[in-house]
């Protein structure tokens, strides 16, 4: 990020931050899944995925709870490495 990006980028208003934090915490509250549970879920998921796709780097996997307009969802994002052939 350049100096000018920093200069002109407005800090997000706190209401927007409040909204995003609330959306996340409410999904956790409702599913009754603690951040530790979610981390454990991610570890187990990584082991399982690697059994089938060994090239996946467990550190790249992202698992998150999201609140969207009509539904709450558990989202797992697993980047795959392109085969170098």
């Amino acid at each position: 990020m350049s100096f000018f990006d920093d200069l002109f980028r407005r800090k997000p208003a706190s209401a927007q931050i409040a909204k995003e934090r609330l959306l996340t915490v409410l999904v956790h509250d409702r599913v009754k899944l603690t951040p530790e549970d979610l981390a454990e879920l991610k570890r187990e998921l990584a082991v399982l995925i690697q059994r089938y796709i060994p090239s996946v780097n467990p550190d790249d996997i992202e698992v998150s709870l999201l609140r969207e307009d009509t539904s709450d969802r558990l989202k797992a994002d697993v980047p795959l490495r392109r085969a170098l052939d």
């Binding site: 208003a13 706190s14 209401a15 927007q16 409040a18 909204k19």
Partner: peptide, 17 residues
């Protein structure tokens, strides 16, 4: 005043959440 400045959740946002 705070809502207008983006420093407080608006009614619509609370209702949406």
């Amino acid at each position: 005043r705070l809502v207008s400045r983006g420093e407080m959740l608006s009614m619509d946002e609370v209702v949406e959440i």
